Amino acid sequence: MSPSSTRPVYRIASIPGDGIGPEVISTGITVLKKLAAVLGTFDLQFDHFDWSSDYYKKYGRYIPEGGLEELKKYNAIFFGAVGAPDVPDHISLWSLRLALVQPLQHYANVRPTRVLRGITPPLTSTATNPQNLDWVIIRENTEGEYAGQGGRTHVGQPWEVATEVAIFTRHGIERLMRFAFETAQKRKRKKLCVVTKSNAQRSGLVLWDEVAKIVGREFPDVEWDKMLVDAMTTRMVLHPETLDTIVATNLHADILSDLAASLAGSIGIAPTSNLDPTRANPSMFEPIHGSAFDLVGKGTANPVGTFWTAAEMLRWLEEETAADGLMECIENVTERGVRTADLGGNAGTEEVTREVCEEIERVCGGKGGRVADGSGREALESGEY
Protein backbone atom coordinates (compact mmCIF):
# COMPACT_ATOMS: atom_id res chain seq x y z
CA MET A 1 0.00 0.00 0.00
CA SER A 2 1.42 3.37 -0.96
CA PRO A 3 1.60 5.99 1.79
CA SER A 4 -1.53 8.10 2.05
CA SER A 5 -1.36 11.87 2.40
CA THR A 6 -4.10 11.63 5.01
CA ARG A 7 -2.20 9.47 7.48
CA PRO A 8 1.03 10.19 9.35
CA VAL A 9 4.41 8.93 8.22
CA TYR A 10 6.93 8.37 11.00
CA ARG A 11 10.61 8.48 10.16
CA ILE A 12 12.56 6.02 12.30
CA ALA A 13 16.36 5.95 12.56
CA SER A 14 17.46 2.34 12.92
CA ILE A 15 20.79 1.75 14.71
CA PRO A 16 21.15 -2.05 15.01
CA GLY A 17 24.62 -1.83 16.59
CA ASP A 18 26.47 -4.91 17.79
CA GLY A 19 25.99 -8.59 18.56
CA ILE A 20 22.39 -9.72 18.34
CA GLY A 21 21.34 -6.11 17.85
CA PRO A 22 21.05 -6.43 14.05
CA GLU A 23 19.11 -9.69 14.42
CA VAL A 24 16.49 -8.40 16.83
CA ILE A 25 16.15 -4.96 15.25
CA SER A 26 15.52 -6.68 11.92
CA THR A 27 12.73 -8.73 13.45
CA GLY A 28 11.33 -5.65 15.14
CA ILE A 29 11.18 -3.79 11.84
CA THR A 30 9.49 -6.79 10.21
CA VAL A 31 6.78 -6.80 12.88
CA LEU A 32 6.33 -3.03 12.77
CA LYS A 33 5.98 -3.02 8.99
CA LYS A 34 3.44 -5.83 9.18
CA LEU A 35 1.44 -3.95 11.80
CA ALA A 36 1.47 -0.70 9.82
CA ALA A 37 0.40 -2.50 6.64
CA VAL A 38 -2.44 -4.37 8.35
CA LEU A 39 -3.80 -1.37 10.25
CA GLY A 40 -3.38 1.09 7.40
CA THR A 41 -3.62 4.07 9.74
CA PHE A 42 0.01 5.22 9.64
CA ASP A 43 3.23 4.56 7.73
CA LEU A 44 6.77 3.90 8.92
CA GLN A 45 9.93 4.87 7.07
CA PHE A 46 13.16 3.30 8.34
CA ASP A 47 16.63 4.63 7.60
CA HIS A 48 19.57 2.52 8.75
CA PHE A 49 22.74 3.80 10.40
CA ASP A 50 25.68 1.40 10.59
CA TRP A 51 27.12 2.91 13.77
CA SER A 52 28.66 -0.04 15.57
CA SER A 53 31.89 -1.46 16.92
CA ASP A 54 32.79 -2.56 13.39
CA TYR A 55 32.33 1.04 12.26
CA TYR A 56 34.52 2.16 15.18
CA LYS A 57 37.30 -0.29 14.30
CA LYS A 58 37.25 0.96 10.73
CA TYR A 59 36.93 4.72 11.30
CA GLY A 60 38.03 5.28 14.91
CA ARG A 61 34.65 6.60 16.02
CA TYR A 62 31.12 5.33 16.51
CA ILE A 63 29.22 8.41 15.38
CA PRO A 64 30.37 10.27 12.29
CA GLU A 65 30.67 14.03 12.23
CA GLY A 66 27.22 15.57 12.04
CA GLY A 67 25.55 12.33 13.09
CA LEU A 68 23.65 13.79 16.02
CA GLU A 69 22.22 16.57 13.91
CA GLU A 70 21.11 14.00 11.34
CA LEU A 71 19.26 12.01 14.01
CA LYS A 72 17.28 15.08 15.05
CA LYS A 73 15.40 14.88 11.74
CA TYR A 74 13.68 11.66 12.85
CA ASN A 75 10.61 10.97 14.94
CA ALA A 76 12.29 8.20 16.93
CA ILE A 77 15.41 6.04 17.16
CA PHE A 78 15.23 2.23 17.18
CA PHE A 79 18.44 1.00 18.83
CA GLY A 80 19.78 -2.55 19.09
CA ALA A 81 22.80 -2.85 21.36
CA VAL A 82 26.40 -1.76 21.70
CA GLY A 83 29.41 -3.71 22.94
CA ALA A 84 31.91 -6.09 21.37
CA PRO A 85 34.46 -8.49 22.86
CA ASP A 86 37.40 -6.75 21.19
CA VAL A 87 36.45 -3.19 22.21
CA PRO A 88 36.64 -2.14 25.88
CA ASP A 89 33.13 -1.74 27.26
CA HIS A 90 33.69 1.79 28.54
CA ILE A 91 34.72 2.90 25.06
CA SER A 92 31.72 1.39 23.28
CA LEU A 93 29.19 2.57 25.86
CA TRP A 94 30.46 6.12 26.11
CA SER A 95 31.09 6.46 22.39
CA LEU A 96 27.64 5.37 21.23
CA ARG A 97 24.76 4.85 23.65
CA LEU A 98 25.72 7.53 26.17
CA ALA A 99 26.91 9.75 23.35
CA LEU A 100 23.31 9.69 22.10
CA VAL A 101 21.40 9.75 25.39
CA GLN A 102 23.15 12.68 27.01
CA PRO A 103 23.20 15.30 24.24
CA LEU A 104 19.69 14.33 23.09
CA GLN A 105 18.49 14.90 26.68
CA HIS A 106 16.94 11.46 27.14
CA TYR A 107 16.75 12.10 30.87
CA ALA A 108 13.88 9.68 31.55
CA ASN A 109 14.69 6.02 30.99
CA VAL A 110 11.44 4.06 31.33
CA ARG A 111 11.35 0.28 31.82
CA PRO A 112 7.91 -1.32 32.25
CA THR A 113 7.91 -4.80 33.76
CA ARG A 114 5.08 -7.28 34.11
CA VAL A 115 4.51 -10.99 33.61
CA LEU A 116 3.34 -11.60 30.05
CA ARG A 117 0.68 -14.24 29.52
CA GLY A 118 2.11 -17.73 29.10
CA ILE A 119 5.41 -16.93 30.81
CA THR A 120 6.19 -18.59 34.12
CA PRO A 121 8.29 -16.33 36.35
CA PRO A 122 10.95 -17.95 38.56
CA LEU A 123 9.34 -17.20 41.94
CA THR A 124 6.39 -19.33 42.99
CA SER A 125 4.58 -16.40 44.60
CA THR A 126 4.67 -14.39 41.38
CA ALA A 127 3.83 -17.39 39.21
CA THR A 128 0.72 -17.97 41.32
CA ASN A 129 -0.26 -14.29 41.29
CA PRO A 130 1.38 -12.70 38.21
CA GLN A 131 -0.64 -9.52 38.70
CA ASN A 132 1.53 -8.81 41.74
CA LEU A 133 4.41 -7.87 39.46
CA ASP A 134 3.33 -4.89 37.41
CA TRP A 135 5.86 -2.08 37.62
CA VAL A 136 7.30 0.86 35.76
CA ILE A 137 10.91 1.62 36.68
CA ILE A 138 12.04 5.15 35.88
CA ARG A 139 15.77 5.68 35.70
CA GLU A 140 17.56 9.01 35.72
CA ASN A 141 19.47 8.75 32.47
CA THR A 142 21.84 11.68 31.95
CA GLU A 143 23.77 12.38 35.15
CA GLY A 144 24.24 10.76 38.57
CA GLU A 145 26.76 7.93 38.70
CA TYR A 146 27.12 7.96 34.90
CA ALA A 147 27.84 11.67 34.61
CA GLY A 148 31.29 10.91 33.23
CA GLN A 149 33.20 13.03 35.73
CA GLY A 150 36.47 11.66 37.06
CA GLY A 151 39.82 10.40 35.88
CA ARG A 152 43.02 8.56 36.67
CA THR A 153 46.40 9.87 37.74
CA HIS A 154 49.82 8.21 38.24
CA VAL A 155 48.67 5.35 36.02
CA GLY A 156 50.53 2.11 36.71
CA GLN A 157 52.11 3.36 39.92
CA PRO A 158 51.35 1.87 43.35
CA TRP A 159 49.82 5.23 44.30
CA GLU A 160 47.58 5.39 41.23
CA VAL A 161 44.27 7.11 41.90
CA ALA A 162 41.00 6.70 39.99
CA THR A 163 37.94 8.81 40.69
CA GLU A 164 34.35 8.45 39.48
CA VAL A 165 32.28 11.40 40.62
CA ALA A 166 28.50 11.14 40.75
CA ILE A 167 26.88 14.43 39.76
CA PHE A 168 23.38 15.29 41.01
CA THR A 169 21.87 18.62 40.04
CA ARG A 170 18.67 20.08 41.45
CA HIS A 171 17.46 20.67 37.90
CA GLY A 172 18.19 17.09 36.82
CA ILE A 173 16.57 15.55 39.88
CA GLU A 174 13.52 17.81 39.77
CA ARG A 175 12.62 17.12 36.16
CA LEU A 176 13.05 13.38 36.65
CA MET A 177 11.01 13.33 39.88
CA ARG A 178 8.22 15.30 38.29
CA PHE A 179 8.13 12.83 35.41
CA ALA A 180 8.02 9.95 37.92
CA PHE A 181 5.17 11.46 39.93
CA GLU A 182 3.24 12.19 36.74
CA THR A 183 3.73 8.60 35.64
CA ALA A 184 2.50 7.28 38.97
CA GLN A 185 -0.46 9.65 38.87
CA LYS A 186 -1.61 8.20 35.53
CA ARG A 187 -1.51 4.60 36.74
CA LYS A 188 -4.39 2.92 38.56
CA ARG A 189 -2.69 2.53 41.93
CA LYS A 190 -1.04 5.97 42.04
CA LYS A 191 1.91 4.67 44.05
CA LEU A 192 5.56 5.67 43.80
CA CYS A 193 8.67 4.36 45.54
CA VAL A 194 11.72 6.64 45.55
CA VAL A 195 14.90 4.55 45.74
CA THR A 196 17.87 6.13 47.50
CA LYS A 197 21.07 5.47 49.42
CA SER A 198 21.20 8.74 51.31
CA ASN A 199 22.40 7.11 54.52
CA ALA A 200 25.79 6.52 52.89
CA GLN A 201 25.81 9.05 50.03
CA ARG A 202 25.23 12.07 52.21
CA SER A 203 25.40 14.83 49.61
CA GLY A 204 24.00 13.87 46.23
CA LEU A 205 21.35 11.50 47.47
CA VAL A 206 20.31 13.69 50.38
CA LEU A 207 19.56 16.29 47.70
CA TRP A 208 17.75 13.54 45.76
CA ASP A 209 15.53 12.86 48.79
CA GLU A 210 14.89 16.54 49.47
CA VAL A 211 13.82 17.27 45.90
CA ALA A 212 11.56 14.20 45.88
CA LYS A 213 9.80 15.54 48.96
CA ILE A 214 9.36 18.99 47.43
CA VAL A 215 8.00 17.68 44.13
CA GLY A 216 5.78 15.21 45.94
CA ARG A 217 3.79 18.08 47.44
CA GLU A 218 2.50 18.85 43.94
CA PHE A 219 0.90 15.39 43.74
CA PRO A 220 -1.27 14.88 46.82
CA ASP A 221 -3.11 12.01 45.12
CA VAL A 222 0.11 9.99 44.72
CA GLU A 223 1.06 7.77 47.66
CA TRP A 224 4.83 7.60 47.85
CA ASP A 225 7.52 6.19 50.07
CA LYS A 226 11.30 6.04 50.17
CA MET A 227 13.52 2.96 50.34
CA LEU A 228 17.26 2.29 50.46
CA VAL A 229 18.43 0.49 47.35
CA ASP A 230 19.73 -2.58 49.19
CA ALA A 231 16.41 -3.05 50.98
CA MET A 232 14.65 -2.47 47.67
CA THR A 233 16.12 -5.66 46.21
CA THR A 234 14.49 -7.77 48.90
CA ARG A 235 11.20 -5.89 48.61
CA MET A 236 11.09 -6.58 44.86
CA VAL A 237 11.62 -10.29 45.47
CA LEU A 238 9.51 -10.84 48.58
CA HIS A 239 6.77 -8.22 48.30
CA PRO A 240 6.32 -7.27 44.63
CA GLU A 241 2.65 -6.44 45.17
CA THR A 242 3.65 -3.41 47.30
CA LEU A 243 5.32 -1.72 44.33
CA ASP A 244 4.00 0.04 41.25
CA THR A 245 6.05 2.98 39.93
CA ILE A 246 9.70 3.12 40.97
CA VAL A 247 12.20 5.94 40.46
CA ALA A 248 15.93 5.55 41.01
CA THR A 249 19.31 6.96 40.04
CA ASN A 250 21.17 6.07 36.89
CA LEU A 251 23.17 3.26 38.49
CA HIS A 252 20.55 1.97 40.92
CA ALA A 253 17.79 1.72 38.32
CA ASP A 254 20.18 0.11 35.85
CA ILE A 255 20.71 -2.73 38.31
CA LEU A 256 17.17 -2.96 39.66
CA SER A 257 15.59 -3.10 36.20
CA ASP A 258 17.67 -6.17 35.28
CA LEU A 259 16.46 -7.82 38.47
CA ALA A 260 12.91 -6.85 37.58
CA ALA A 261 13.18 -8.37 34.11
CA SER A 262 14.50 -11.62 35.53
CA LEU A 263 11.70 -11.75 38.09
CA ALA A 264 9.22 -11.39 35.21
CA GLY A 265 10.77 -14.31 33.34
CA SER A 266 13.80 -13.19 31.35
CA ILE A 267 15.89 -10.18 30.48
CA GLY A 268 15.08 -11.11 26.87
CA ILE A 269 11.55 -9.71 27.16
CA ALA A 270 12.39 -6.34 28.69
CA PRO A 271 11.90 -3.03 26.83
CA THR A 272 13.45 0.39 27.36
CA SER A 273 12.41 3.87 26.35
CA ASN A 274 14.99 6.66 26.53
CA LEU A 275 12.75 9.71 26.53
CA ASP A 276 13.13 13.42 26.11
CA PRO A 277 9.77 14.32 27.67
CA THR A 278 9.96 17.81 26.17
CA ARG A 279 9.94 16.17 22.70
CA ALA A 280 12.58 18.64 21.55
CA ASN A 281 14.68 15.65 20.42
CA PRO A 282 13.72 12.22 19.07
CA SER A 283 13.51 9.61 21.82
CA MET A 284 15.33 6.28 21.58
CA PHE A 285 13.90 2.81 22.13
CA GLU A 286 15.94 -0.32 22.84
CA PRO A 287 15.61 -3.78 24.37
CA ILE A 288 17.72 -4.01 27.51
CA HIS A 289 19.41 -7.36 26.93
CA GLY A 290 22.61 -6.02 25.37
CA SER A 291 24.70 -7.36 22.52
CA ALA A 292 24.87 -11.00 23.78
CA PHE A 293 27.64 -12.14 21.47
CA ASP A 294 27.25 -15.72 22.70
CA LEU A 295 23.94 -15.87 20.79
CA VAL A 296 25.05 -14.26 17.54
CA GLY A 297 24.14 -16.25 14.45
CA LYS A 298 22.38 -19.04 16.34
CA GLY A 299 18.87 -17.83 15.62
CA THR A 300 17.89 -18.22 19.28
CA ALA A 301 17.79 -14.60 20.48
CA ASN A 302 14.50 -13.66 22.07
CA PRO A 303 12.84 -10.93 19.97
CA VAL A 304 10.03 -10.24 22.45
CA GLY A 305 11.98 -7.49 24.21
CA THR A 306 12.37 -5.76 20.86
CA PHE A 307 8.68 -6.20 20.02
CA TRP A 308 7.65 -4.77 23.38
CA THR A 309 10.12 -1.92 22.81
CA ALA A 310 8.49 -1.34 19.41
CA ALA A 311 5.11 -1.12 21.12
CA GLU A 312 6.48 1.48 23.55
CA MET A 313 7.84 3.45 20.60
CA LEU A 314 4.41 3.42 18.94
CA ARG A 315 2.83 4.54 22.21
CA TRP A 316 5.27 7.46 22.42
CA LEU A 317 4.34 8.37 18.83
CA GLU A 318 0.72 8.46 20.10
CA GLU A 319 -0.32 5.41 18.10
CA GLU A 320 -2.03 3.89 21.13
CA THR A 321 -4.25 1.46 19.22
CA ALA A 322 -1.27 0.04 17.34
CA ALA A 323 0.75 -0.31 20.54
CA ASP A 324 -2.16 -2.00 22.28
CA GLY A 325 -2.68 -4.35 19.36
CA LEU A 326 0.96 -5.33 19.17
CA MET A 327 1.07 -6.20 22.87
CA GLU A 328 -2.09 -8.30 22.46
CA CYS A 329 -0.44 -10.22 19.62
CA ILE A 330 2.80 -10.75 21.53
CA GLU A 331 0.98 -12.17 24.53
CA ASN A 332 -1.27 -14.36 22.40
CA VAL A 333 1.89 -15.94 20.98
CA THR A 334 3.65 -16.40 24.33
CA GLU A 335 0.46 -17.82 25.80
CA ARG A 336 0.36 -20.46 23.04
CA GLY A 337 3.79 -21.62 24.14
CA VAL A 338 5.83 -20.17 21.28
CA ARG A 339 8.83 -19.15 23.35
CA THR A 340 12.61 -19.06 23.03
CA ALA A 341 14.98 -21.06 25.24
CA ASP A 342 15.41 -18.33 27.86
CA LEU A 343 11.68 -18.70 28.57
CA GLY A 344 11.80 -22.49 28.66
CA GLY A 345 10.71 -23.00 25.05
CA ASN A 346 12.36 -24.29 21.90
CA ALA A 347 11.29 -21.72 19.32
CA GLY A 348 13.85 -19.71 17.40
CA THR A 349 13.92 -16.01 16.64
CA GLU A 350 12.35 -16.44 13.20
CA GLU A 351 9.53 -18.66 14.46
CA VAL A 352 8.51 -16.20 17.17
CA THR A 353 8.62 -13.37 14.63
CA ARG A 354 6.54 -15.31 12.12
CA GLU A 355 3.96 -16.22 14.74
CA VAL A 356 3.61 -12.61 15.88
CA CYS A 357 3.20 -11.43 12.27
CA GLU A 358 0.50 -14.04 11.69
CA GLU A 359 -1.20 -12.99 14.92
CA ILE A 360 -1.19 -9.38 13.71
CA GLU A 361 -3.05 -10.50 10.59
CA ARG A 362 -5.59 -12.36 12.70
CA VAL A 363 -6.12 -9.85 15.52
CA CYS A 364 -5.65 -6.52 13.77
CA GLY A 365 -6.68 -7.33 10.20
CA GLY A 366 -9.98 -5.87 9.10
CA LYS A 367 -10.68 -4.19 12.42
CA GLY A 368 -9.75 -0.69 11.40
CA GLY A 369 -7.16 -0.56 14.16
CA ARG A 370 -9.52 -1.66 16.93
CA VAL A 371 -8.35 -4.37 19.30
CA ALA A 372 -10.49 -6.71 21.33
CA ASP A 373 -10.95 -5.96 25.01
CA GLY A 374 -8.79 -7.90 27.42
CA SER A 375 -5.12 -8.12 28.12
CA GLY A 376 -4.18 -5.70 25.38
CA ARG A 377 -6.27 -2.95 26.94
CA GLU A 378 -5.01 -3.89 30.37
CA ALA A 379 -1.46 -3.60 29.08
CA LEU A 380 -2.21 -0.09 27.87
CA GLU A 381 -3.64 0.93 31.21
CA SER A 382 -0.86 -0.63 33.26
CA GLY A 383 2.00 0.61 31.13
CA GLU A 384 0.73 4.06 30.21
CA TYR A 385 2.98 7.01 30.88
Rank of each mutant, 00 (worst) to 15 (best):
S125D: 11
L295K: 11
F181P: 01
S262N: 13
G325M: 01
D54G: 14
G376V: 04
K188G: 11
G337P: 05
R217K: 13
P22M: 04
F181W: 01
N199C: 02
N346Q: 12
K73Q: 14
V31G: 02
G368K: 01
R97E: 13
P122T: 08
G268R: 04
E164A: 10
I137N: 03
E218W: 11
S92V: 00
L35Y: 04
A76P: 07
N302F: 08
Q201I: 15
P303G: 06
L104S: 02
V338T: 05
D54Q: 14
L116D: 02
W224K: 01
R189G: 06
D134W: 10
V24W: 02
E143V: 07
A301K: 02
G268N: 01
I288Q: 07
F219P: 02
C364K: 03
Y107I: 07
S14L: 11
E350I: 09
P158Q: 08
E174N: 14
A310M: 03
R377A: 13
S283Y: 07
G156M: 11
V165F: 06
A292K: 00
A248F: 04
E160H: 10
T27H: 08
V363S: 07
G40A: 04
D54K: 15
C193W: 15
V356Y: 06
E318M: 14
A184L: 06
A292I: 07
E182C: 09
R170P: 06
D47N: 15
A270S: 10
T334M: 03
H106C: 07
F181L: 05
N132I: 09
S291Q: 03
G265D: 06
D244H: 13
Q105L: 11
I214M: 12
D276T: 07
E318A: 14
Y55F: 15
S291I: 06
T272Y: 01
I360V: 09
W51G: 08
I267A: 02
Y56F: 15
I246T: 10
I29V: 14
N302M: 08
A81S: 07
A260K: 01
H90N: 11
V338I: 14
P282W: 03
D276R: 00
R61Y: 15
S262T: 13
V247K: 06
H239P: 12
D373P: 12
P282M: 02
T242G: 11
I288G: 00
A162N: 10
E241C: 06
G365H: 03
